[in-house]
């Protein structure tokens, strides 16, 4: 009994620690060819002569099945995480103030002041424009800076890859010289798009729109031009240097004018910027020039992204 126990223990010990005795029914692996030097002897995976340790076998098993198991675990984990997050947030939403109710905490004295006094304090007919470019202008300045940061970062990462031979950039964009339909449409559409963009930018303080929306519209005109007439033709009036100069200058004007406004506001000095008559084009103090600056930045940056991603250069 004791010996049996011992042998079982020994077997188990060998199974765990390896290096057990050779079993009778062992199938030996084919002998390595004798001409191979000793050090290059192939690792015999299926030999039972030296029983592999548990760790070795685990590693072998992991090598074969690991990726599969890992991917299953991963998707299970994904679904679980997703469910936990969604259930938690749904439970939160169920307790939130009711949708569309006028007595919700968010409809407080702050909103009342924005709506009731915003028009004469900022001069803007569009309350949101007055809110983002006058009451909370520092946020919007930060937001334009985010765009600027992303623009210089993308320019740094992707810029100049057309001319440099270091990057094997695939030129997926094939420019065709004979696309009559595209060119015909572009001739008609580009002026309209440009005008539309300008209207949206300039009317930002009077109606829905503003620098961001208008700038995005303007950039589509540039992108259409690049597709119809090639990037070279856009590069004649909008290249990397002009992109950097226009973005920096526009953001600089924004920073300086808003800085002046912040400075006078905080120190309770009189600001020389007139508010104008609400509803006119030339009104709302700094909002109109700021919208134009933001429009320039956004138009340049969005076109810059497009050109950098498709051509590797602006």
């Amino acid at each position: 009994m004791n010996d049996e126990l011992k042998s079982i223990w020994l077997k188990f010990f060998n199974w765990v620690m390896g290096n057990g005795p050779r079993p009778e029914n062992e199938v030996l692996p084919p002998e390595p060819p004798p001409d191979l030097p000793f050090t290059q002897k192939p690792h015999d995976k299926f030999s039972r002569f030296h029983e592999a340790t548990l760790k070795e076998r685990y590693n072998q098993w992991l090598e074969i099945h690991g990726l599969h198991i890992f991917s299953i675990l991963y998707s299970a984990l994904s679904i679980l995480t997703c469910l936990v997050i969604v259930v938690l947030l749904l439970a939160t939403v169920a307790e939130l103030p009711p949708f569309g109710h006028e007595r919700n905490p968010a409809n407080n004295e702050v909103i009342r002041r924005y709506v009731e006094h915003g028009w004469h304090e900022t001069g803007a007919q569009n309350i949101v424009a007055g809110l983002i470019l006058d009451y909370r202008a520092f946020d919007t300045f930060g937001e334009s800076s985010v765009l600027f940061t992303a623009a210089v970062s993308v320019l740094m990462i992707l810029g100049n890859s057309r001319s440099s031979k270091k990057y094997k950039f695939k030129q997926l964009h094939v420019y065709r010289n004979d696309d009559t339909i595209l060119r015909g449409v572009a001739v008609m559409a580009i002026p309209v798009i440009l005008m539309m963009g300008c209207v949206v930018v300039i009317n930002g303080h009077l109606s829905a729109g503003g620098g961001f929306a208008g700038g995005a519209i303007l950039s589509t005109a540039l992108i259409l031009c690049a597709n119809a007439y090639g990037f070279e033709s856009v590069r004649r009036f909008f290249n990397e240097r002009i992109f950097i100069v226009s973005s920096s200058t526009a953001l600089m004007i924004y920073a300086l004018s808003k800085g002046y406004s912040f400075f006078t506001g905080a120190n309770q000095l009189h600001s020389i910027i007139p508010k104008g008559v609400v509803g006119n084009i030339l009104s709302a103090g700094l909002i109109l020039p700021l919208n134009i600056c933001v429009g320039l930045i956004v138009a340049g940056t969005l076109y810059g992204f497009y050109a950098l991603f498709s051509e590797g250069d602006i």
Binding site: E109, V110, R113, Y114, E121, D134, Y135, R136, A137, F138, D139, S261, F262, T264, G265, A266, S271
Partner: peptide, 13 residues
């Protein structure tokens, strides 16, 4: 507190 603009606490930054 330094108001960023002409509007004090809960209205401006």
């Amino acid at each position: 507190n330094f108001p960023m603009g002409h509007f004090p606490a809960p209205w401006g930054n």
